[in-house]
Design a protein around this nucleic acid. Structure first.
Lengths: 135, 135
DNA sequence: CTGGATCCGAGACGATACTG
DNA sequence: CAGTATCGTCTCGGATCCAG
């Protein structure tokens, strides 16, 4: 990490930053994927998202929504009604991303069982080695 | 998470044990993507990975490699030479994943500038609102 | 209904030192 | 070369309470 430039108006700290890995870390984060996929079918409300993304807390949903909105992936629309109504929808950029995410989720679904099996086998081998080491 | 309503949102991404979210969180984690992409061109050694994945520490590289190996995505081959030589290569399952990850990284590269711009605009609006609130 | 604010434990992560 | 062990820091993320 480069030290902060001490000279004038160094708001340029960000220009070199934001490597691809950073972008992906935001976008492919634990909750972001779920939110984007859930919002892909059209405008969706806060509570609907909370139910759609299994296991997310209200706090993390809020934070994830803010992050995605800040990155220009979500548009937040507030309807000044009582009770309040807020809808989130994907931007074009996010819609492009969604297509890629779908191939990811598809892969994950197809290989979920394989991964579980691989883990079991790995752990078993590990235990075996531990036994022989002890013996 | 007790009651499961019989109604909509059945197309949620995760719905059972070892949810897709878990899989994706492992596989699309901050460092995993970089490692998989770096290992896609063929067997690659530890130190080569360390240089290929920008910003990763030795510790995180080790942990990431173990995790991916455990999930059945990487094969670790040790050559009993002096000095030691260890090579990592993708499994077929991981090679499939790699294709999806390429579309992701491609998206990230294409929209990196857009995201930075969106952030700047968002932060600016935020500051403006703060000013009016103070005034 | 849609959040924000705060507290706090758990895990991620980097730096450093040591090993076969 | 390819790791492991330990430590301290920091962020993530849940729980809870409060508000428009």
């Amino acid at each position: 990490m480069s030290q902060r430039n001490t000279d004038v108006t160094a708001q340029v700290i960000q220009d070199q930053a934001c490597p691809i890995v950073e972008v992906l870390d935001h976008v492919a984060g634990k909750w972001s994927i779920g939110v984007i996929v859930a919002a892909a079918d059209g405008p969706i409300r806060f509570t609907e998202l909370e139910r759609a993304v299994n296991g997310i807390s209200r706090r993390m949903l809020t934070l994830t929504l803010r992050k995605l909105e800040r990155d220009g992936l979500l548009v937040r629309t507030v309807y000044p009604t009582v009770p309040p109504r807020v809808e989130y929808s994907l931007t074009d950029m996010a819609r492009e991303l969604h297509a890629s995410l779908l191939t990811l989720t598809s892969w994950a679904e197809r290989h979920r069982a394989d991964i579980i099996a691989a883990r079991a086998e790995y752990d078993e081998r590990e235990d075996a080695e531990l036994s022989t080491a002890t013996a």
